[in-house]
């Protein structure tokens, strides 16, 4: 109890000190835009490049083209927008491929400035990282063939749903299916391409995983059903002490939201 209070006091002091530094530096700025965006942003300006972690295996969000070696996607564009805000140039970015395991550690040790990598905002994670407001709402979704006429979980009684091994998809869907009296058969595969191929070949009736991943496999003959069977909000994460940077990133996103740029980007990547 005592220790908890001490930690709270320490955190309060830390936050106020950081807040003060952020305020004070914003008044006496020295950036190209004429006004400083904070200490962390200054450091990035000094370095001349924004270091960001993105996914490299989720098409449309962050995907490394095997042919060209270039990383592109919706989240990469968000990183570019932040780079434009801080450095005045959307191309001054250095991208690193991250996974669910590495992304928090790379922020902690200062190797990355921010991470935009289908990172779900949770209360637990907020304790150790700063998150922006959500820029994309996602959740477990279902992909079916357009020709199948299937419209939702309720239609999937006795149908085959392809899911990935070691994912929570099966349990979540089962929870939602039980009250509907729907009993789908789950077939587990080793990787997403196999599930998509199984869907195309007619081996399964539906392909279910997080929507972000499904979007990467969307094509002319398939559709993603509108329902979500869990709710995940994606946010851009920064290291806990860099609250000033978190604010800059969040402001950038807020501006993009109100100007409609965010929606345009989603449109561009086929995420609407």
């Amino acid at each position: 109890m005592r220790r908890g209070m001490m930690a709270a006091v320490a955190a309060a002091i830390l936050v106020s000190v950081l807040g003060l530094t952020a305020c004070s530096s914003s008044s006496g700025g020295s950036s190209g835009n004429g006004k400083s965006l904070g200490q962390s942003a200054d450091a990035i300006q000094k370095r001349g490049v924004l270091k960001a972690g993105v996914k490299i295996d989720v098409p449309k969000f962050g995907y490394k083209d095997p042919g060209t070696g270039k990383i592109d996607g919706f989240e990469v564009d968000l990183v570019r927008a932040v780079a434009k805000k801080i450095l005045g140039d959307p191309n001054k970015i250095e991208l690193t491929g991250v996974t669910a395991k590495t992304r928090a550690a790379l922020l902690d040790n200062g190797e990355l400035d921010l991470v935009a990598a289908t990172f779900t905002i949770t209360e637990d994670r907020k304790k150790s990282l700063n998150f922006t407001d959500s820029y994309f709402t996602d959740g477990i979704a279902i992909m079916v063939k357009k020709s199948s006429g299937l419209t939702g979980l309720k239609d999937l009684d006795k149908k085959k749903i392809g899911v990935a091994k070691s994912a929570t998809t099966k349990a979540r869907l089962q929870e939602k299916a039980d009250p509907l009296g729907v009993k789908p058969e789950f077939l587990e595969f080793d990787s997403y391409p196999e599930i998509k191929a199984a869907l195309d070949a007619g081996r399964v009736d539906a392909f279910s995983v997080d929507g972000a991943i499904l979007y990467g496999y969307l094509d002319d003959s398939t559709q993603i059903l509108p329902d979500r069977y869990s709710q995940e909000e994606y946010g851009i994460a920064t290291a806990k002490p860099k609250t000033d940077l978190a604010k800059v990133v969040n402001d950038t996103l807020a501006e993009m939201k109100s100007s409609g740029e965010l929606d345009q980007l989603k449109q561009k990547w086929g995420l609407k």
Partner: peptide, 9 residues
């Protein structure tokens, strides 16, 4: 299989 994911046909 990775290519198959993008080009099932």
């Amino acid at each position: 299989k990775i290519i198959m994911g993008a080009h099932a046909e």
